[in-house]
Amino acid sequence: MLAADDAALRVLVLENAPPMSFRDEFGQLTGFSVEIARAVCHEMRVNCAFDVVTQSAMLPTISQGKADIAAAGLLETPERRVKVLFAKPYYRSISLWLAPSGVTPGQAGVKVAVVGGSAQDAYGRKQGWDMHPVATHGDLGAPLLSGEAQAVLVPMISALSLQKNEAFRQLGLATTVLQAPELSGDASFGISPFRPELQKEINAALDRIKRNGTYDRINSRFLPFRVS
């Protein structure tokens, strides 16, 4: 979707990252993050134009001020905090290590599939793991099915959609919750550092939709449990 000229805010979203951000059967962008972003725009009474980007392009675009809001569940890490502003968290996430039994994090010779530019990607590289980055969350299953990667490190909600894939389930991977501070906790929208005034407005809008039921309706629509 291209930014309309009169759009007050340019909002970056991912696609092919169900159930957070994807296109429905009519080709319309939807998902938990997208709908929360829409609700926030509605609460702020501003027009928002959605631009689809990849995970790896999202933060650079925001930090350069080419867009106003990154509407995806970004984990707030020290590296990111110097580049972009963060809104109040809109859900809390954990990261999962999905691998065949016996394949443990950090094990030599294990290729780990991640979404390029994600917190999980950054964490794996920092640990010195052999990473196999893919462009979108929807592409995460393929490297494991083809044998290019032996494990996948994903945010919990991406794992949910991977589990829905019959072939992926057939791999019979074991689930481990990785309890690293960089991999779990608050997930927030990113805000352009050139628009600091947006932070307060977005936070107030988030508070309102959490109080007035909009948030919970969107939660129920896309996710099997309460993620805030």
Partner: peptide
Amino acid sequence: MFVVTLIASHPS
């Protein structure tokens, strides 16, 4: 079971 694992591990 996967959902149960996620819920049981979720910060909330």
